[in-house]
């Protein structure tokens, strides 16, 4: 069973690896946006050093971590949802349900492959260019890198779980685009892609930091920057893992209800 899902993940990886031109174009775009944001953050941290607890090199590292994770963790949505929504709409989903595999794990495996490719193909180069062009904070120990990568993975699972819910909404809503739009807008704002969530003022900041989207970028970035250590690190992982499990469980529940619907309707 594990080998099957590994094969699905490998397939997802290979599929995205074939779009070389698109990957190069994406790297270029992420780098351009990274540059623009890095200069605005420089100006902001020049005016308010230590804003949000970051010094300037940390704020700049945050910018490039965001660009590196943008495609891999699908911060603004995208990835597999369109395809799953299309299968639900055309009714092809009935075929998938009769396969001897778990629907949620199947799509998760494929998306893991995609994310892994995009982390390497679209993440590494902008991050490296950012580190060359700006004075960005770098982790002192390899262990911090490992802790960061684990947090990236957990954040990715939360991202998948949210997008899976979005896709499943197509069973009930005429237009899956509506749910996708709401999810994408939330992602734009609450991942901290525009501005680190610890710079969000007052209650807005507290809410933003408690929502699942903070698991995608803010928490991995803070672990990279050495903000969470010891029990704090465990708490951060628990926050990510908790949201991941909760959202995956809701997805599973919705999937069960939807499956019954499809079976009752006779496919």
């Amino acid at each position: 069973m594990v080998r099957l899902y590994a094969a699905v993940a490998a397939g997802g990886f290979r599929r995205y690896a074939t779009y070389r031109m698109a990957t190069a174009a994406g790297v270029f775009t992420n780098t351009v946006f990274g540059f623009v944001m890095a200069y605005t953050y420089s100006a902001l941290w020049d005016a308010r050093p230590r804003l949000g607890g970051y010094d300037q090199p940390q704020a700049l590292a945050y910018v490039w971590i965001g660009q590196a994770l943008f495609a891999a963790s699908a911060l603004f949505g995208g990835g597999f949802e369109d395809e799953l929504i299309a299968r639900i709409r055309t009714g092809d989903i009935a075929i998938d349900l009769y396969r001897p595999v778990d629907l949620q794990l199947w799509w998760l495996a494929g998306d893991v492959g995609r994310a892994l490719f995009q982390l390497i193909g679209r993440g590494v180069i902008p991050m490296a260019l950012g580190a060359l062009a700006f004075d960005i904070a770098l982790p002192g120990s390899p262990l911090t890198w490992l802790a960061f990568l684990l947090a990236v993975f957990l954040g990715f699972v939360v991202s998948f779980a949210v997008r899976y819910l979005v896709a499943l909404s197509a069973f009930w809503l005429m237009d899956g685009a509506g749910a996708a739009q709401v999810a994408s807008l939330s992602g734009m704002f609450f991942t901290g892609m525009l501005l680190p969530l610890n710079v969000f003022p007052g209650l807005l900041g507290e809410i933003a930091r408690a929502l699942p989207w903070s698991a995608l970028l803010q928490i991995p970035a803070d672990i990279y920057l050495g903000t969470h250590t010891g029990w704090g690190l465990v708490r951060a992982y628990a926050f990510q893992g908790g949201w991941a499990l909760a959202l995956l469980a809701v997805g599973r529940l919705l999937q069960m209800v939807a499956t019954r619907r499809v079976v009752v309707q006779g496919g």
Partner: peptide, 26 residues
Amino acid sequence: AQDASEVQNAFTYGGNTLLQYPPSIF
């Protein structure tokens, strides 16, 4: 380059984002 629409985004959407901020910070 048929798959390069993202390059265009860098100049259009990216350019627009750039111009939202004052030139003095760049």
